[in-house]
Design a protein around this nucleic acid. Structure first.
Lengths: 221, 221
DNA sequence: CCGGATCCCCAGGGATACTG
DNA sequence: CAGTATCCCTGGGGATCCGG
């Protein structure tokens, strides 16, 4: 990317990660951990392979990414974040927090992946009752799935399915996320195309963090 | 900007503010407050007026910016952030925090402005001794100046000059910021081209916050 | 199937000039 | 002062192809 030419830490940061797709590549490496070119490509629907290749090279030169040749049985190159790249997590968290208010709009054809479902819950909700016993919630959004474990005041989420869950929420991505993030309540679950199986009460354990944009509106309407 | 087409709050946020210059426009409005087209242009060296005009229109449509026609005596249009735009401050803070480690590199010809000097100090340093009386530090970097007031555990900084200061630090931007941010100590002030006037000891009141990238390296080297 | 490289084409953005 | 208009060029989307 062409430099902004400003002696300012924001501008210099954007000189490095302001290119198209750059921060989304970091997102995928953060969520997936060390992974292959193809895994990245799959986690970034719409990216041209040539562009992905070019960005990876740039980010490697900038010291955000390291490529490691996997040991013999695998014989492929893996991409991983360096400490400097991992230090971008707060940036992605704050951007994601700001972008939450854009998730209610239905754009229909957007791609969706299970790791995005997982990070949304883990980053933007908290355990409403740290003293209560652990609960497991299974989320199924279209063909993606994630397991949410709420316990000891923290919320952990990962792509995949659990053998057993206290509650299973199934439906389109917008509805699953909307319910989990508190955009609407269980009463509206039906009209939103959701199917809830199990103890609905455990949903109360998941408290959505206050949205940054809403908070700003409330502070100064 | 072309949409990424991901149903993910990070990607949707970048659909809105991922365009070139967009976040820097927000930076200027955050630092300068409500201001005119020309003020923005001046705070964004290198931007083409046509591009600035286009971005302002886009950001206005996205609801981040509002244009207000100033009252009669002025008769110009002012641009200001809406609450939604102001909610981007944590994003700019985290990006700026990550970009701090890029500020040591000397790129020589970079533009520099007093409001960037001010926010760097205010965002990334803290009062090392909240009980001690207020101190005022005058920073002069080339032709820009900022006043830093340290008191009651907080650091306030603004562009401009103070009638009187406990300490005046003058020199090239990289050196002034390097000293204030703790990259080097007062012993190296001479070689860095700095001139210190007043009580050097008050510099100890300014404690730089730990750099995110350094912290990441230390956690996992 | 993996990890790219190559090619074409268009839109986004840089530079400069110009106008209400 | 507050933008538009114009020109040009690069960056990136899309598809295809190629070596391992």
């Amino acid at each position: 990317m062409r430099s902004y030419g400003h002696y300012c830490s924001i501008a210099r940061a954007l000189d490095v990660v302001g290119d198209r797709w750059a921060l989304l590549i970091v997102r995928e490496l953060l969520l997936q951990g060390s992974c292959r070119f193809t895994d990245l490509k799959h986690g970034l629907p719409g990216v041209a392979p040539s562009l992905l290749s070019a960005r990876l090279k740039e980010l490697e030169e900038a010291g955000l990414i390291a490529r490691e040749d996997a040991p013999p049985p695998i014989a492929t190159t893996l991409y991983a974040l360096t400490p400097s790249g991992r230090a971008l997590e707060p940036v992605l968290r704050s951007i994601g927090a700001w972008g939450r208010h854009l998730m209610v709009a239905d754009r229909g054809e957007d791609a969706f992946q299970s790791q995005w479902l997982a990070y949304s819950v883990e980053w933007f909700t908290t355990d409403a009752d740290p003293e209560a016993p652990q609960v497991v919630i299974q989320l199924i959004a279209d063909d993606t799935a994630a397991v949410v474990e709420v316990a000891d005041g923290s919320v952990k989420a990962r792509p995949g399915r659990a053998p057993t869950a206290d509650l299973t929420i199934e439906g389109p991505p917008r509805s699953v996320l909307g319910l989990v993030m508190g955009v609407f309540g269980t009463k509206d679950a039906g009209p939103m195309g959701l199917t809830l199986t199990g103890r609905r009460a455990v949903l109360a354990r998941l408290r959505p963090l206050r949205d940054a944009v809403e908070r700003a509106h409330h502070a100064d309407p």
